[in-house]
Amino acid sequence: MFTTVSTPEADETCAYCGSLIFDHDPICVRDCDDGCGSPAYFYNYACLSAHVDENDLTAGNACEWSPGE
């Protein structure tokens, strides 16, 4: 499996707030458990965090750490 990396267009907008991503520190996210589909771009970590919270994307995922394992 491999993923092609490319730079988004200058007018790419945030998947959460709709702002131009290059106005701040853009984040690119792919769902690689689902065939590494198209990337989603976020304006910054706050938009990514809000998107994750609002869509309950941590439920049922491996978001816990067991230091003894």
Rank of each mutant, 00 (worst) to 15 (best):
G35H: 09
T13A: 14
C28A: 14
Y45L: 12
N44R: 04
L20E: 04
D34N: 14
C36A: 12
G37P: 00
C17L: 08
R30N: 06
G37L: 08
F42H: 01
A59Y: 04
D25V: 10
C36W: 03
S49E: 12
N55K: 08
A15S: 11
Y16I: 04
Y43N: 01
S6V: 10
D23T: 15
D31G: 01
D31T: 07
N61Y: 03
C14A: 08
A50S: 11
S19F: 06
T13W: 05
A62K: 13
F42K: 01
G60W: 04
C14Q: 01
D23G: 06
C63R: 04
D25T: 13
I21Y: 01
T7W: 00
P8R: 04
S19H: 07
C32L: 05
G60R: 03
I27L: 14
Y45W: 13
S19E: 09
R30Y: 10
A59T: 14
S38P: 00
I21R: 02
Y43W: 12
H24K: 14
A10R: 12
P39F: 03
C36G: 11
T7D: 02
E54H: 00
S19Q: 12
D34K: 15
P8V: 11
Y43R: 12
D31E: 15
S6F: 05
W65D: 02
D34W: 01
I21V: 15
C17W: 05
N61L: 11
W65Y: 14
G35Q: 04
E64Q: 13
A59H: 07
S38A: 15
A40N: 03
A50V: 05
C28K: 03
C32W: 12
C17F: 08
P26A: 09
L57F: 05
D33E: 11
T13G: 01
S49D: 15
D31M: 06
V52D: 05
E12F: 00
S6T: 15
D31V: 08
N55V: 04
C32F: 12
G37I: 07
C14W: 00
S6W: 00
P26T: 09
T58A: 03
S19N: 13
D11H: 06
C47T: 03
E12A: 14
G35M: 10
R30A: 08
E54Q: 10
A40W: 02
L48F: 11
Y43H: 15
D11F: 01
P8S: 07
S19P: 00
A15G: 00
D34I: 09
A40G: 00
L20S: 07
C14P: 00
A50K: 10
D23V: 06
Y45F: 15
A62L: 13
G18V: 10
L20M: 10
T7E: 05
L20Q: 08
N55H: 14
T58I: 09
A46F: 02
E9N: 13
E64A: 12
D25P: 01
I27V: 15
I21N: 02
